[in-house]
Design a protein around this nucleic acid. Sequence first.
DNA 1: GTCTATATCTTGATAGAC
DNA 2: GTCTATCAAGATATAGAC
Lengths: 225, 225
Amino acid sequence: MSSVSESFSAQNPSAERIPAAERREQILAAASQVFGARGYAGATTDQVAQAAGISQPYVVRMFGTKENLFIEVIERSLSRLMTVFRGEIAKTDPQAADPADTDPAYTDLLSARLGRAYIDLIEDRGILLSLMHGFLTGHDPAIGAAARTGFLDIYRLLRDEAGFEPDQVREFLADGMLFNTLLALRLPDAYDNDEAARELMDCTFRTKLDLVLGASAAHWSEETA
Amino acid sequence: MSSVSESFSAQNPSAERIPAAERREQILAAASQVFGARGYAGATTDQVAQAAGISQPYVVRMFGTKENLFIEVIERSLSRLMTVFRGEIAKTDPQAADPADTDPAYTDLLSARLGRAYIDLIEDRGILLSLMHGFLTGHDPAIGAAARTGFLDIYRLLRDEAGFEPDQVREFLADGMLFNTLLALRLPDAYDNDEAARELMDCTFRTKLDLVLGASAAHWSEETA
DNA sequence: GTCTATATCTTGATAGAC
DNA sequence: GTCTATCAAGATATAGAC
């Protein structure tokens, strides 16, 4: 994107004009990080603006309201997540005819692959965390509705497209929620100092631990405040 | 508590004086509900005050800061949760000598009982939800530290006092996090209108479903806004 | 122990120029 | 397409009376 000039001042220095669609995605990416770290209520539109390198009113101008921006962030996260899942399903199941009639070995393999793909999503810290904050904002009418719909869409994808039994879906989702919670808690930061944290993370993230710890260190150290 | 007089005006009408300790617990109980519904950043000290039937400055006066109030709410939730778990452990295991060397049937039974006890805690909606919001506020230095410590305390309780293997703890915690998420999402409200919601809740809450649905209807209908 | 009044800061949103 | 200036509302915290 817009080169070195931004590294000093967060504010768009020469007010460079870029296409609205591109700017939109820039803002959404920035908002995803900010909302993921602080939640809907805890984040400000100004923090998003700074992260995107533009002015606060422009953020509001482009998305109407903070609430609407958050909803678009959630929908973007859901879209990415489901795209990734569908990719794994397609990759794993090149010749299965009936997704409702699958053998146990297949769903076990697919479950492992989807789990790995989920963990890979951590590379962009904002996706899973802003989603999680969306789920926790069920109280807000508009956000709550979007969050419920999205969550149930994931449920149906796992059941109908991946061919999981309801109880397999439940287990998969449960692991995901623990995963998200450990990330939000920033437990990776305690990995070196607490044996319980270490043990829990070892058994939660297993082979993908390096990715989690590495992404964590890189991510949090960049934070503004 | 202070009887009928409060049903009209939320504000303590005649400024009735009650012992500080009792008032403290009143405020904590109210704050637990409010923070549980809206999270730390989303809740206001005034909402807590109204829920407790006193003035906003008095809430701040008694707890110093909103942040400190939230931390005390979290600690109260943790304390209740751990007390309940310890009660189940004691009840289940009257004669086991070495908690580190337990047979599978025992941990299965205990796990089921702890799970049931956890679901029972939903009767007070604030406990699990304010805890969950605490976990999601790992970004705040003070709150994050309290949340991490508390989470790890629960981990150690399950491992050392309940005698679970790390992987059993992981699974138990994962179910708990899914449980909390479904509550925060207010999925119980969608039970009648969405087959996926119904299926997921049926298999998550099983025999305790009545409790979840009942408590939900009763709880949310009482809400102020 | 508890309230009223209020200072002060933050923040989402609008107006309007370039 | 993007910014500066600014308003209005809301929220935490303090002061001080009763």
